[in-house]
Amino acid sequence: MSWYVVRRLAISFVVLLGISALVFFLLHVVSDDPGRVVLGQRASPQAVADFNREHGFDRPLVVQYLSYLGQLAHGDLGRSYKLNENVGAVLQQNAGRSAMLSLAGLVLALLIAVPLGILQAVRRNSLVDRAATAASYVLYATPSFLLGLILIAVFSQSLPFFPAEASQSHSSWVVLTDPRAMALPVITLAITSVAIFSQYQRSSALDQLGQDYIRVARAKGLPERSVLTRHLLRNACLPLITLVGTLIPSLLAGNLIVESLFNYPGLGLLFLNSLQHEDYPVLLAYTLIGGVLTVAGNFVADIAVAAADSRIELNK
Results as ranks from 00 to 15, higher is better:
Ser80Ile: 13
Val5Leu: 13
His231Asp: 04
Pro223Tyr: 04
Thr246Lys: 05
Arg36Glu: 13
Arg130Gln: 15
Leu222Phe: 05
Ser20Ile: 07
Leu240Arg: 11
Gly290Arg: 10
Val30Thr: 14
Leu66Ile: 14
Ala95Arg: 01
Ile196Pro: 03
Ala304Gly: 05
Leu83Lys: 14
Arg97Lys: 14
Pro281Tyr: 11
Ala306Met: 09
Leu232Ala: 08
Pro239Glu: 00
Lys82Ala: 13
Ile118Cys: 05
Lys220Pro: 00
Ile152Phe: 00
Gly75Lys: 06
Ser172Ile: 10
Ile257Trp: 01
Ser80Phe: 06
Asp129Ser: 11
Ala181Val: 04
Ser172Arg: 09
Pro185His: 04
Thr177Glu: 11
Gln201Pro: 02
Gln201Asp: 01
Leu240Asn: 08
Val62Trp: 08
Phe262Tyr: 08
Phe162Asp: 04
Val14Glu: 02
Ile150Trp: 07
Gln41Ile: 12
Thr133Tyr: 13
Leu111Tyr: 01
Glu259Cys: 01
Arg8Ala: 02
Val216Ala: 12
Pro163Phe: 01
Ile187Asn: 03
Ile112His: 10
Gly35Ser: 10
Val295Met: 08
Asn125Ala: 10
Phe51Ser: 10
Leu222Val: 04
Tyr213Asp: 00
Gln199Thr: 07
His28Ala: 10
Ala285Pro: 07
Ala190Lys: 06
Met1Leu: 08
Ile112Val: 15
Ala109Glu: 03
Gln120Arg: 14
Tyr140Leu: 15
Arg53Ser: 15
Gly148Cys: 02
Ile257Lys: 01
Ser102Asn: 10
Thr188Val: 10
Ser102Ala: 15
Ser310Phe: 05
Leu272Ala: 02
Cys237Glu: 00
Gly297Ala: 10
Ser193His: 11
His231Ile: 05
Val38Lys: 03
Leu26Phe: 13
Asp309Tyr: 08
Met1Asn: 04
Gly18Gln: 05
Ala301Thr: 08
Ala195His: 08
Asp76Val: 12
Pro60Arg: 14
Ala307Gln: 09
Leu69Glu: 09
Val122Met: 11
Tyr68Glu: 11
Ala195Phe: 07
Val107Tyr: 06
Ser203Ala: 15
Tyr4Leu: 06
Val62Asn: 04
Ser274Cys: 04
Thr192Lys: 14
Thr246Ile: 15
Leu243Asp: 06
Val63Ala: 15
Ala10Tyr: 05
Asp279Pro: 02
Ala104Glu: 06
Tyr4Met: 07
Ala195Arg: 13
Ala236Glu: 09
Leu272Met: 06
Ala109Arg: 09
Gly297Ser: 09
Leu233Met: 15
Glu54Val: 13
Met100Leu: 08
Val186Phe: 06
Gln276Thr: 06
His55Gln: 14
Leu17Val: 12
Leu111Asn: 04
Pro239Cys: 12
Ala205Thr: 15
Ser169Gln: 01
Ser126Leu: 12
Leu232Asn: 07
Ala253Pro: 00
Asn125Tyr: 12
Arg79Trp: 05
Val128Tyr: 15
Thr142Ile: 03
Gly148Asp: 07
Ala95Lys: 02
Glu278Val: 13
Arg215Glu: 11
Arg59Asn: 12
Phe299Pro: 04
Ile191Leu: 15
Ser310Pro: 02
Asn52Lys: 13
Val244Leu: 14
Gly88Met: 02
Ala43Glu: 12
Ile241Cys: 08
Arg230Leu: 11
Ile257Cys: 02
Ile187Tyr: 01
Leu288Cys: 02
Ser67Pro: 04
Val138Leu: 15
Thr229Gly: 02
Gly245Cys: 08
Phe145Pro: 03
Val154Arg: 05
Thr192Asp: 01
Gly148His: 04
